[in-house]
Amino acid sequence: MPICGPKLSLCGLIISVWGIIQLALMGLFYYIHSVALIEDLPLEEHYHTPAEFYAAADKAYLQNAHNCWIAALIYVVTLGFSAQQFYANSRGSSSN
């Protein structure tokens, strides 16, 4: 049963593939504590001691890595859904 049209499902497919690749990689970069991504961490403006900052940063890095991977996993679901929709659409249009 096609819910999305052919264009929307194709769009979903492309964004899902892109999302899986980029979010998985970003998750990996967060996991290895990439400095380039430090600006995108949920951190406070100021910390009193370096140790405090490092602890917070480590925690945030790990959390963001997990968030990225979770989002990537949701994109796997989206990919499956879009693929099913795309298939349903193409089958529907070819049988007509």
């Binding site: 979010l23 995108d40 949920p42 997990h66 968030n67 991977w69 979770i70 949701i74 994109y75």
Partner: peptide, 16 residues
Amino acid sequence: LTMSGPMGGIGLWAIF
């Protein structure tokens, strides 16, 4: 990316 908590992943999914 700066969303914290359990909704972070889902929020990231939508915003991405």
